[in-house]
Nucleic acid binder design. Structure first.
Lengths: 337, 337
DNA sequence: CCTTAGCACTCGACACGTTCAAGTGCTAAG
DNA sequence: CTTAGCACTTGAACGTGTCGAGTGCTAAGG
């Protein structure tokens, strides 16, 4: 009962089960894989694997299916990521080339990844904690409304419409803009809120009320600029992959709408040796994602931002890992260029 | 066999079926509704309704379920929209008050509507075809990159990062900004593209290459500013409502990801007497939405922008109509204020 | 002409028993 | 350690019979 062969059996079971969605038995295994031994031997191996908790039999006379622990062992044993097919490489290349706005690139990427893996693809947009204030613009819209625009050194733009006393003139706005610009230009986004306060306090009394309101708005924008956000695509794949278990898809869709859950999950994942994180089923404590796995990796060196896919525990891990890694590499190359 | 009673029977069938999801028979009908006649009479009425094509029996000895035509007749007969419950009114009021950025308001609204109706809620963000250029800003980001910001009179901000020859100085940028601003300020968004071309042509030769690039970018932004967009929430409700028909939920989710389908659908809907559009099942030709209905209405007087819900044909139309109408009213009030 | 009671009829849902085959664990021999 | 053989378990599939919901029809009554 050699250990390497047992793991080979586990691999075969996982592969067949992912492919067929049905418990796989000893006989089918020796037929589909050249294992060089008979079904009886496989049965002995399976018994050991079951004792180890890597596979289970749903009922007495059915084949075995991998447990979460089994998937984990399987994933950990993946040594070299199989490269994508030329067609897939071409798809990535053609879809992502043509430098564009970051939001556009991320949007395309997430769709592409969903298509490549047939899973739900997710991208956490990078946060740039070291962003600084590059510019501020106050634009009167008439009707006592002012549009406040805050631009960071990373090219991120936040805007908000603020109601202001109608008697505020364009000159007043100009003065206010100068004051805020002087106080904030080049400062770190995290500090903006406090600095706004200070700037507003030093304004001439005539501008004080407007200044206070604007300070609050700018502060909110700065905080907003650091807000984490998630974009995704391919939720339809979830329905297709899950079969007819509507009770299992509902909580997942709910969790996906609550971006907070995913953000927490991402932040808790630990990268493995290949720089890719895989979280399987109940390994993440979020109950609504009990039967789903996540494969993710970072794509911006300095940041915690991640890109990945999410699907049923019974998913094609090698393919997902390969696609996620490839997409992340292209992505970071594009964003760096 | 009075016509009014027959329609009353149809109403009862629709209501019961929506509630129970099971074919409803004559006996159950007289028990649950005070129709004042016996089951036998109801049976005669049902036979007529079936002949009219308003209801069908899935098989010989089952109750009847409404056809699309039946739902249509039912919806057309809704005279006065039942008002929302006080609790629901309060929910709307408390969630939507506190004036904020439009995107934030729309985001909250779509979630609220999904919660109120237990359906998928959809909002088409308004396009403002009469928007004019309010401001342009060029912000150097270093590394030969420039952030182009285009602000419309409606407070909409579009931005894009453009690569530019690194030797372009801040002064050059200032000149370019002045040139574009002079050419575009106050002009209609639709004309921006052509005007950009003209402005770029008149630049001094030194700035011509940069100007051409920027002109292209600004033109793209202007067109982008008019792009239609859709936000939605409550996809999990779809899974819950659909039961275990995974084959019916998949194409719907796919259609929802393809915003184009929804935009087309919205544009093709015709408002009924109450200003609310209801499209039932195959009334809209989009195959993937064969068994789904849409209830929608406009919420910005001048625009085609719509807010609505989407769900299975077997949905609670009165409630959906009431919620959509109420939310649309609050929304337009907020956006107008 | 409409309503109603009664009745025969249809047909899916359900419960039950039987068969079938996949798959296992065990044992004994190589 | 591997393997063939075999008894055993058990879910899935199938056929059968019963049950009941629901219908359509007919004939009688207002």
């Amino acid at each position: 009962m050699s250990e390497p062969r047992r793991l080979e059996v586990l691999r075969a079971i996982v592969e067949d089960y992912v492919h067929s969605r049905e418990p796989v038995g000893s006989k089918a295994l020796v037929e589909r894989h050249r294992l060089g031994v008979s079904a009886a031997t496989i049965r002995n191996d399976m018994a050991s694997l079951e004792e180890e908790g890597l596979i289970v039999a749903p009922h007495t006379s059915a084949g075995r299916i991998p447990t979460e622990k089994g998937y984990r062992r399987f994933v950990d044993r993946i040594e070299d990521v199989k490269p994508l097919s030329p067609a897939e490489r071409r798809a990535i290349q053609s879809l992502l080339e043509g430098s564009d706005d970051m939001d556009v690139v991320l949007d395309r990427t997430v769709r592409l990844l969903a298509q490549l893996t047939h899973q739900v693809a997710v991208i956490q947009v990078p946060r740039f904690s070291d962003a600084k204030v590059r510019h501020i613009e106050l634009v009167g819209l008439g009707a006592g409304q002012v549009l406040v625009v805050l631009i960071s050194t990373t090219g991120k733009v936040e805007q908000r419409v603020v109601p202001l006393a109608p008697e505020t003139t364009d000159e007043d706005l100009h003065d206010l803009k100068s004051a805020f610009l002087a106080a904030l230009s080049g400062r770190r986004m995290e500090d903006v809120r406090d600095l706004c306060q200070g700037a507003a306090d030093q304004l001439p009394p005539r501008l004080a009320p407007a200044g206070a309101q604007l300070a609050a708005a700018v502060g909110a924008l700065a905080r907003n600029s650091g807000a984490e956000r998630i974009i995704m695509a391919g939720t339809a794949n979830l329905a297709r992959a899950t079969g007819d278990f509507s009770h299992t898809i509902t909580p997942v869709l709910e969790a996906l709408e609550e971006q907070v859950v995913l953000l927490r999950l991402f932040s808790e994942m630990e990268q493995d040796a290949h720089g890719i994180s895989v979280s399987i089923g109940s390994e993440h404590a979020h109950g609504s994602l009990a039967e789903t796995s996540v494969v993710a990796t970072g794509y911006v060196p300095g940041s915690t931002a991640k890109v990945g896919v999410l699907g049923p525990t019974r998913m094609d891990y090698p393919n997902s890992i390969a696609a996620v890694r490839a997409v992340a590499r292209y992505l970071s190359r594009i964003l760096a260029g």
